[in-house]
């Protein structure tokens, strides 16, 4: 890990879903700096999911550079990319983030199973997870609760703890607040930002909700950084 490299660099990226030639996404240039929080605004169908898949290394661009924490994802073999994702990126989804049958603790520790380095960084992983739970305002004893029994808001906070454990350089969040009501949303974002700042992690959030913007260092529209092309096949 090079300390100077930004957590995320996209340069002259062109991507086309294999077999689905009707959709093409290109990103000329987009960076997320260390410790920076960026909100990307975009409606559904604007290419958000494709962009996140590219950043997470689920898919690889046909041309251009996608580098996370100084590593070109295209240079890694698929298996190595999966491990790399576990090591360097914390992922938060919209909802249904957790394995409902597993305990909160197991859910938080799950990415560490695939990321030995991140596990080392987490130190005493169980204690770290417990500390994160407390910091995120989860009730005492929730570590051993089945994740499926928690409220949606609590589940989202657990997924924040899971993304933060072991301090990955980049956190990618895909509409994490869309399933929450307005009050919970604000509390949730407050907790998320506290923890992101405390760990010095960069945050890239994708949403369609402009009202979230005031908390972020930068607010961009997806169409400002990326162009999509739809052709009728």
């Amino acid at each position: 890990m090079t300390q100077s490299a930004p957590p995320l660099v996209l340069n002259k990226v062109r991507f086309r879903w294999p077999g689905r030639s009707s959709f093409e996404l290109s990103v000329p240039a987009f960076n997320v700096e260390r410790g920076e929080s960026v909100l990307l605004l975009g409606e559904s169908g604007s290419g958000k999911s494709t962009l996140l898949s590219l950043i997470c290394g689920i898919v690889v661009a046909q041309s251009g550079l996608v580098a996370v924490d100084g590593t070109d994802l295209a240079s890694l073999r698929p298996g190595a990319r999966d491990r790399f994702r576990a090591e360097r990126i914390g992922v938060i989804f919209q909802q249904f983030n957790l394995l409902p049958y597993a305990t909160v603790a197991d859910n938080i520790l799950l990415p560490l199973q695939f990321a030995p380095d991140r596990r080392k960084r987490a130190g005493d992983a169980l204690a770290t997870a417990a500390r994160l739970c407390t910091a995120l305002g989860l009730p005492d004893g929730s570590m051993s609760t089945q994740a499926g029994r928690l409220s949606v808001g609590q589940q989202q906070r657990v997924s924040v703890a899971r993304a933060l454990i072991g301090q990955p350089p980049l956190i990618v969040a895909d509409e994490p607040t869309s399933a929450l009501d307005a009050n919970t949303q604000d509390a949730f974002l407050g907790l998320l930002f506290d923890q992101v700042q405390a760990t010095g992690t960069s945050l890239l959030m994708v949403s369609h909700d402009e009202r979230l913007g005031h908390r972020f260092d930068r607010v961009l529209r997806l169409e400002d950084i990326a162009t999509t092309e739809r052709q009728l096949a």
Partner: peptide
Amino acid sequence: IWRAMGARP
């Protein structure tokens, strides 16, 4: 979820 957490196919 498994995939997002770094599990390979």
